[in-house]
Design a protein around this nucleic acid. Structure first.
Length: 325
DNA sequence: GGCCAGGTTCGCT
DNA sequence: AGCGAACATGGC
């Protein structure tokens, strides 16, 4: 591979306060699950962005506080222009949800004895988003039924095999494959990358519909939650769990709640049901008290579990080991 | 080695 | 409508 000349530029993002960059970046990368495209190290979050086919690497760090947040961003890539920088900024603001005002959520948690301590210890934590609907959808399909570790291995293989790459400062980043690349790979190609025949069909099928403009996934950003769910679940391979997953981690919706999610059922069981896993219906009924902020409520709970702060959860018995949150 | 893991579809009653 | 099987892989 030939070395490219890398240009650099920088700018500042001023999030709506309160904003906790560390908690948010940590949540995005907690399982290092997308290390080929992003990672968080020594307080610096780095990722590759595909801006209309131009690859750039962004490095972000906090230069402010939770109450007066400022983020320093450095962009590096072979081709930098003003409009590219504007798009990169917009993308990062979306991924990090820096324009989201959590005040309405905190008004709700103030009146909720269960969430109040969590909201205080995680003040400023936002729910990070994935870079594109296609990435989110394929990742959701990859994650169906199998453990997070296996899903990650499969996604890594997919990105290494069919993504585009950019090397900056000795680190090679891979983007998520474009639909065209997965169509070219075909069902057989994806099977060779350790995916089941069924999932390979789902993924290639969706990629084909995108390439032929039969569906417009990016248009989902402007649709209502219900329309999103209806549109997505009409696709073969996409059920209600995957659709909710996209609402939560790609479309930035405040009230997504994948009640069929096994880990979520376990987490709610641990913190609110004496350690006994809730059924999907139980979880859904229980979640209604948090509407219309169920995305945030569950992310705060997962965040507390992941960062080993179950003690923030008033109803936790601490007797039960939290299973792989 | 067997069972399970942050589901979905398909083919049966 | 509702139920069960099949699905591919990695970790324990």
């Amino acid at each position: 591979m030939t070395e490219q000349i890398i240009h650099r530029a920088s700018f500042t993002i001023e999030p709506v306060q309160p904003y906790d960059f560390h908690l948010t970046a940590d949540y995005a990368t907690h399982f290092n699950g997308r290390y080929l495209w992003e990672f968080y190290e020594d307080g610096v979050y780095r990722c590759v962005l595909n801006i209309d086919g131009n690859l750039v690497v962004a490095a972000m760090r906090s230069i402010g506080t939770v109450e007066a947040p400022r983020l320093d961003v450095e962009i590096a890539g072979p081709k930098l222009g003003e409009s590219l920088l504007i798009d990169a900024r917009r993308k990062l603001e979306w991924i990090f949800q820096t324009n989201v005002d959590l005040a309405p959520f905190y008004r709700m948690t103030d009146a909720d004895p269960f969430l109040k301590p969590l909201a205080e210890t995680h003040r400023g934590f936002h729910v990070p988003q994935g870079p594109s609907v296609f990435e989110g959808l394929v990742s959701a399909i990859l994650g169906q039924q199998i453990s997070g570790q296996v899903a990650r291995a499969l996604r890594t293989l997919l990105m290494e095999s069919y993504g585009e790459s950019l090397t900056v400062d000795g680190v090679t980043y891979f983007t998520f494959p474009r639909p065209e690349a997965l169509v070219a790979a075909g069902v057989q190609g994806l099977r060779e990358k350790k995916n089941s025949g069924r999932k390979s069909e789902y993924i290639v099928g969706i990629a084909e519909k995108l390439v032929s403009d039969e569906i417009d996934l990016e248009g989902l950003y402007d649709k209502s939650d219900d329309e999103v769910i209806e549109t997505l679940t009409a696709l073969r391979g996409v059920g209600i769990w995957s659709a909710h997953w996209l609402l939560v981690r790609t479309l930035g919706r405040p009230d997504g709640f994948p009640h069929g999610d096994l880990a979520l059922q376990k987490a709610l069981g641990d913190v609110a049901n004496g350690g006994v896993r809730m059924t999907g219906e139980e979880a859904l009924e229980y979640s209604l008290r948090w509407s219309p902020f169920r995305t945030y409520a569950t992310a705060y709970i997962f965040g507390a579990i992941r960062s080993g702060r179950q003690s923030d959860l008033p109803m936790s018995t601490n007797k039960h080991e939290v299973v792989n949150p």
